[in-house]
Write a protein that binds this DNA or RNA. Structure first.
Length: 810
RNA sequence: GCCGAAGUGGUGAAAUUGGCAGACGCGCUGGACUCAAAAUCCAGUGGUAGCGAUACCGUGCGGGUUCAAGUCCCGCCUUCGGCACCA
């Protein structure tokens, strides 16, 4: 078979026939299958794209044959840092390189032979898309879900530029090697925390991998406790969050994050030098390192004390980097007796350690630091209470004193969406001296990203230097004003793209509510596990926010989710240009065709695991398809029916056919493609066996073979379409219904079961279905081997697992 | 460090969720066809011992629960994903 020719042939026919296009008339049978769209980082598809899109397309074709009206769109997440870096290096404009890459990738995606509905294509860097990304920003702003506050960024003092975490290598700027520091900038945030509780609760109802739900749950990080107000000697008040209010009497110090404004305010003149130095050191430290429990905790006394509201005791205030200003209140209380970290800190700085909890029973080892719940001691008014009771009562007491409240805290932070970069959607806001921060009127959208900018980093972001872009009239008062020079995080673009696909040409609104309420949620979302916490959480947030504004009526964007694994380099490491272990799909496509590569990816790996690339076995796929083709040729040339009846051979064949149908069907639903292909190979083996018979029931044989081709069609679409035609059938195999399992063909009168004696495998016997215990016993004693073993022994227990195993305990 | 996974023959991987470990392939060995090779077909293939029936061992390591553990529990080791400005 001339693979190249038939691929071309069927791709042309499919395209002409618009087989991949969604027909809105059938939207009651819709199946929206979405693969995470790609970043156009290079001009060619890499194996990862193939692995994501190939098998999923097979799944989609399977769904189509199952009678669904399938919607499988494709697009490009086209804004982002790499294109801008590339521009700085080469001088090629991000727009030019990105659009070129997209054109090339579209071409190779088409050659893959997947059923993408190109009518609905989205490119996020095009005006007709980012106009609506900006619309989304304005809507969130209107709803009070977008706001500005100061936040630290990575700052290279030499390049005078903001760096992405990726651009900071070992605390140094990747370009010039200068030590990177943290610097505060006013930034835009989305208030995702307002939805923390719903984002947490909503996880329960989702058909997602458990591990992904767990990761999101931990990311949201709900903890219940209280906020307690401490008063500094100066009179300044600050709050600490704690889940262990029961240990409040054991506080021997409090800690403020070094960035906390009170640190600068309260530090005594004697301590100023030490504190300033500490704060500066902290600005160079990465957050991950600050939070590391292995790193020795450091801190510095600021020369000022605070009052514990429960007992009026004076405790020293420290600045320490293990407290993050962005989490909780940016301040914690230190209870060395009942927290490991505080214990180590107190030892180091010679702070008092007083027990306030003891083990609830004498046999509990409650050596300090004792971090479990217990019974209160040394806590006047609360002694003898359990930790659980005390947490409630102590906070109640503080509430009555006006210096505490019950509080639920989330680790989840608000989403920082502004970027000091060029290649992104401009933030549609205007800063006016008189009117303050003013949104761009909807009628003025899109705020167009200018083409003619200077990329070279020189202390100002490219848009801030572009006077034509920056200068604008205030929409409120008409006075000269300045545009916001920042662009949106590309995660904003990808947080709503699935809403645009079903109505991608709409020029009046981002999407039509009626349409997307019909088309969503996405029935199956397929993409990498690396998005577990961020992209998937942001999309859920945006969906819920738009729901609350009345733009849609569903709560969750992705009903069901699958993560494909990663194909690693042959050396077992992640493919990367620098490691030189990148495997390109093109040579395989050229040599064997796209069906073979797709089928190999589906057969050779466990879909959710992935693994190191190896081409051993790709020839096996070629062989598999060749065997089918040879058999097809034989079948086409078959004589008339020589045999009418259904004998044992036919029964066996029909069993094999229906066994395959049943299992392939189930495996497809579970994205268990490798086992599905294995079942197809088994069926082929059975057909080959039948083919070897002298006398064949031709109609049973032909029919069985047709079923194999129907089952194979989603896996090898071009090949199967061609064989289907060879067999004299009408185009297209994908408009044929998927084979249905005939359960009656699977009923067998006898089953083989394993026999164990005292849990040791002894033998296998074939017995009739549905025997009772006595009948089985009889058979066991009658069996030559087992009977001998059981002779003279007493059966204590007989364990029967139907159709599987018999275990005799003697 | 924290959060989340994974570890099974020479090799890619299966195992109906506690019930015959290794389905289906690759590779290898032997055979058929051939002057020969390729291709194709047939048979075998976890390890050790044995001519053999068979016996013992075997799912990263060490314990445990159970009639029964790759699967559940406890403790380790190794590798991978994420950690909020890569997407």
């Amino acid at each position: 078979m001339d693979v190249k020719k038939i691929e071309k042939k069927w791709q042309t026919i499919w395209e002409k026939d618009k087989i991949a296009n969604f027909n809105p008339k059938n939207s009651d049978k819709k199946y929206y299958c979405l693969e995470m769209f790609s970043y156009p980082s290079g001009s060619k598809l890499h194996l990862g794209h193939w692995y994501n899109y190939g098998p999923t397309d097979s799944f989609v074709r399977y769904k189509k044959m199952k009678g669904f009206e399938v919607f499988q769109p494709m697009g490009f997440d086209a804004f982002g840092l790499p294109a801008e870096n590339y521009a700085i290096k080469t001088g090629i404009h991000p727009k030019d390189s990105t659009l070129q890459n997209i054109a090339n990738m579209e071409q190779t995606l088409r050659e893959m032979g997947a059923m993408f509905d190109w009518n609905s294509e989205i490119i996020t860097c095009n005006e007709d898309y980012y106009k609506w990304t900006q619309w989304l920003f304005l809507k969130l702003y209107e709803k009070g879900l977008a706001y500005r506050k100061e936040a630290p960024v990575n700052w290279c003092p030499d390049c005078k530029t903001v760096l992405a975490n990726e651009q900071v290598v070992n605390g140094e700027c990747e370009r010039c090697g200068a030590t990177v520091i943290k610097k505060d900038l006013t930034q835009w945030f989305f208030k995702i925390t307002e939805y923390a509780e719903e984002l947490l609760q909503g996880l329960d109802g989702l058909d997602w991998p458990e591990k992904t739900k767990l990761m999101q749950k931990n990311w949201i990080g709900k903890s219940t406790g209280g906020e307690i107000t401490f008063t500094a000697e100066s009179g300044d008040k600050f709050k600490v969050f704690t889940t262990r209010a029961d240990t409040l009497f054991g506080v021997s110090y409090v800690v403020l994050a070094p960035e906390h404004p009170l640190v600068a305010k309260l530090t005594s003149p004697e301590q100023k030098k030490a504190v300033d130095a500490y704060v500066f050191e902290t600005s160079k430290t990465k957050e991950i390192d600050r939070l590391s429990t292995a790193k020795e905790k450091t801190g510095v006394y600021i020369g000022h004390d605070a009052i514990n509201p429960i007992n009026g005791k004076k405790v020293p205030i420290f600045a320490a980097d293990y407290v993050l200003y962005s989490y909780g209140t940016g301040a914690v209380m230190g209870v060395p007796s009942h927290d490991e970290r505080d214990f180590a800190f107190a030892k180091k700085y010679g702070l008092p350690i007083q027990r306030v909890i003891k083990g609830s029973s004498p046999d509990v080892n409650d050596e300090l630091p004792f971090v479990n719940d217990g019974v209160l001691v040394n806590s006047p008014g609360f002694d003898g209470l359990t930790s659980e009771e005390a947490r409630k009562l102590i906070i109640n007491k503080l509430v009555s004193l006006g210096c505490g409240e019950h509080k639920t805290n989330y680790r989840l932070r608000d989403w920082l969406v502004s970027r000091q970069r060029y290649w992104g959607a401009p933030i549609p806001m205007i800063h006016c001296d008189k009117c303050g921060t003013v949104p761009v009127p909807y009628s003025d959208l899109p705020v167009k990203l200018p083409y003619d900018v200077e990329f070279k980093p020189d202390g100002k972001s490219p848009l801030a230097k572009h006077e034509g872009f920056m200068n604008v009239k205030c929409p409120v008062c008409g006075a000269p004003a300045r545009r916001d020079p920042d662009t949106l995080d590309t995660f904003v673009c990808s947080s709503w793209y699935f809403l645009r696909y079903p109505d991608s040409k709409n020029s009046k609104e981002p999407f039509n509510t009626e349409i997307i309420n019909k088309m969503l949620p996405v029935d199956k979302y397929v993409g990498g596990a690396e998005h577990a916490c961020m992209h998937l959480l942001y999309s859920r947030f945006v969906t819920k926010a738009l729901r609350d504004m009345g733009y849609l009526n569903f709560d969750e964007p992705f009903k069901s989710l699958i993560h494909q694994g990663t194909i690693l380099g042959p050396d077992g490491f992640k493919m990367s240009k620098s490691k030189g272990n990148v495997v390109a799909p093109d040579p395989y496509v050229n040599e064997y065709g796209s069906d073979v590569l797709r089928l190999y990816l589906m057969f050779g790996f466990s879909y959710v695991e992935g693994g190191p690339w190896s081409e051993d076995g790709i020839k096996a796929i070629v062989k598999f398809l060749d065997r089918i083709e040879r058999l097809a040729n034989k079948i086409v040339a078959l004589d008339k029916n020589k045999k009418e009846q259904i004998g044992k051979d036919e029964k066996d064949l029909l069993y094999a056919v229906n066994y395959a149908i049943k299992n392939v069907d189930r495996d497809m639903e579970n994205f268990s493609f490798n086992t599905a292909v294995a079942r197809l190979m088994e069926l082929l083996n059975n057909l080959t066996k039948y083919d070897g018979l002298e006398v064949k029931n031709t109609s049973v044989y032909k029919d069985s073979f047709s079923k194999l081709i129907l089952l194979l069609a989603p896996f090898a679409p071009h090949f199967s379409e061609e064989i289907w035609e060879m067999l004299g059938n009408k185009y297209s195999i994908f408009n044929k219904p998927y084979p249905v399992c005939d359960e009656s063909a699977l009923v067998r009168d006898e089953v083989e079961v394993a026999v164990q004696i005292n849990s040791k495998m002894k033998t296998k016997i074939v017995i009739a279905n549905g025997l009772n215990e006595e009948q089985i016993k009889e058979i066991l004693f009658a069996d030559e081997k087992i009977g001998k073993e059981l002779e003279g022994k007493q059966i204590k227990k007989l364990i029967i697992v139907p159709k599987r195993l018999i275990n005799v305990i003697v």
